[in-house]
Design a protein around this nucleic acid. Structure first.
Length: 110
DNA sequence: GAGATGACGGGCT
DNA sequence: AAGCCCGCCATCT
């Protein structure tokens, strides 16, 4: 797993790195932008391998539901929510965000 | 080369 | 409405 050469992963990191503060993108969306509309799993996998000392705002990547996927699986979920809230993203009582409001698209930005 | 894994997505029950 | 199942892709062992 530590090969980390020019692979799909780096593409994911690059894309996430381009996500502006206060905006979020879904796994499926990232996969789509990378040319693999159905590789949402691979995207999540890529972020899973993401070390803690990188410059990739992985917390801005959420599932299509607008919520943290690993909400109760890892402590990182709490961190993610905290980070997003500090960026202006608001979570509702269900721990979900207004995806249609925060979702960011590279085309509409560039 | 084959099988198993995974921060997902969409569809069906 | 919530939960379960299947399928997708890329990587790893």
């Amino acid at each position: 797993m530590n090969k980390l050469k020019a692979t799909f992963y780096e593409q994911v990191y690059a894309f996430v790195r381009a996500v502006p503060r206060g905006a979020v993108v879904t796994y499926g969306q990232v996969a789509l932008e990378l040319g693999a509309p159905a590789a949402a799993r691979a995207v999540g996998y890529a972020l899973h391998f993401l070390p803690g000392d990188n410059d990739v705002p992985w917390w801005r990547v959420i599932n299509v539901r607008g919520e943290v996927s690993f909400k109760n699986r890892g402590e990182a979920a709490d961190l993610q929510r905290k980070l997003l809230e500090s960026e202006g993203v608001v979570f509702d009582a269900s721990g979900k965000t207004d995806l249609q409001q925060y979702r960011w698209w590279p085309d509409s930005q560039a």
